[in-house]
Design a protein around this nucleic acid. Structure first.
Length: 432
DNA sequence: CGGCATACG
DNA sequence: CGTAT
DNA sequence: GCCG
């Protein structure tokens, strides 16, 4: 049982309390940078669609100035890095900190190892309380066990606390919390001596791309968790738009919410048309509809290569339709049953929400559903298992048997697990 | 000692 | 490089 | 960093 260790363990996992992921920012400086840098509704600036704004436009310069002003007036600038107030970290959180730190150091191997270690613990029915209980678990080696021992013994880890109090780690964590800013950009900004959003926004030589502009503009909203009620409301909005286009279309909520979580960082939806071939333009028509309603704040769409042959000619045909898109939508509070999940002191009656739409052809639905239900670590483990143990290639669109040199068909997720020779795993068991 | 998921803009 | 699971 |  080689690469499959994780998959078998997760069968035994039980449903855990679904909470949104802790952030480290919240623990240390109290409010710190999380203070709404971009009160998306407090200015008419925020209501203007950014869809066609170039980085160099006057509008954007005004926006940068505006946001910088907000930052500088409300925050200490540069921020005071206080030693973190250490809450007791769970073993999983400790491993995630280590993983993230290795990611910032561009050491993908150790990073992945700690992600797997966190994942293994998450998949257990109850928390590990002794080293003995962890003895036979996979993906736990010398380093992870040393950290475990320390935390089990005295509730904290020297190594983890050193990382959490590290100025570079805190700054990279802050910068990468912006939609469109990854480890490399964060590192670049940090190397140039920038330490806060206001410093980044005040730097004239920095040209934010479209995604980063939206990231800063809607920072307060996007970094706040999305509730299940809000996800349902978004689902209804998309459903209405789709129904006006094709009445028999079907909408499926995926991502973390399908895994039973109460909060998420975005809403993932699969749109499928009953008519074969109807999905070709479905997404762009939905986007048009959202645009007309004036609730589309950001949109990036991507084509799919659902070619079975990888022939360039086939590829060409599939080029002009869009299989997935990343959106930011304006969600009105009146549409949410339990009301908006708003920050304190936010008097707006709306918030921005990240929404991902996927529209696969019907015969690829099961693969798309499996691929978009996650979790990320589960998908990686499943694909690694397929490749190493079954000599198969798995992605969002299909499963290819390298031995038989053919694509395997599936109408349900269970079909795919069957092809892989695995017991079916319920969505809520895929959280690790 | 090599591999670590996979795809798209 | 960034995004998604 | 852990595993095959």
């Amino acid at each position: 049982m080689t690469g499959s260790c994780r998959l078998h363990i997760s069968v035994w996992s039980s449903r855990r309390k679904a909470t949104c992921r802790k952030t480290f920012r919240g623990q240390r400086q109290g409010q710190g940078h999380r203070r709404r840098i971009s009160p998306s509704g407090s200015s008419h600036l925020a209501r203007l669609p950014l869809l066609s704004v170039s980085h160099h436009s006057l509008f954007f310069k005004a926006l940068q100035f505006f946001m910088c002003h907000i930052c500088c007036s409300r925050l200490r600038c540069p921020p005071l890095r206080l030693p973190p107030v250490f809450v007791l970290l769970s073993l999983q959180d400790a491993f995630e900190v280590l993983a993230e730190n290795y990611e910032f150091s561009e050491m993908e191997g150790p990073c992945l190892a700690f992600r797997r270690a966190a994942s293994v613990l998450k998949s257990l029915p109850s928390a590990v309380e002794s080293l003995r209980a962890a003895q036979d678990l996979p993906c736990l080696g010398e380093h992870t066990k040393a950290v475990m021992e320390e935390i089990l013994r005295c509730g904290r880890s020297f190594e983890v606390e050193k990382i959490l109090s590290d100025e570079r780690f805190q700054t990279l964590k802050l910068f990468t919390s912006v939609f469109g800013v990854g480890p490399k950009t964060a590192e670049k900004w940090h190397r140039r001596g920038l330490r806060s959003f206001s410093e980044v926004l005040a730097e004239p030589s920095i040209h934010l791309n479209r995604m980063q502009q939206s990231g800063f503009l809607h920072y307060g909203d996007i970094s706040r968790a999305v509730s299940k009620a809000e996800a349902r409301a978004v689902g209804n909005i998309i459903d209405e738009a789709v129904r006006a286009i094709t009445p028999d279309a079907m909408l499926t909520l995926t991502g973390g919410f399908r895994r039973g979580k109460e909060f998420g960082h975005d809403v993932d939806l699969i749109v499928t048309a009953a008519e074969p071939g109807r999905e070709q333009n479905l997404l762009s028509e939905i986007i048009d509809s959202l645009k007309k309603q004036g609730i589309l704040l950001f949109c990036e769409y991507q084509a799919s290569t659902f070619d079975t042959t990888k022939l360039p000619s086939h590829r060409f045909e599939a080029m002009d339709h869009f299989a997935k898109c990343f959106l930011i939508l304006r969600l009105e509070g009146s549409r949410v049953d339990e009301g908006l999940h708003s920050a304190e002191g936010d008097s707006r009656n709306w918030r921005a929400v990240r929404v991902d739409l996927v529209s696969p052809p019907a015969d690829h639905f099961a693969f798309t559903l499996l691929g978009w239900t996650g979790s990320r670590q589960f998908e990686r483990d499943l694909r690694r298992f397929a490749r190493l143990e079954r000599r198969m290639l798995l992605d969002n669109h299909a499963l290819f048997d390298k031995t038989k040199k053919e694509f395997l068909t599936a109408t349900t997720e269970k079909d795919i697990f069957d092809h892989l020779g695995l017991e079916y795993i319920e969505p809520w068991q895929r959280n690790a």
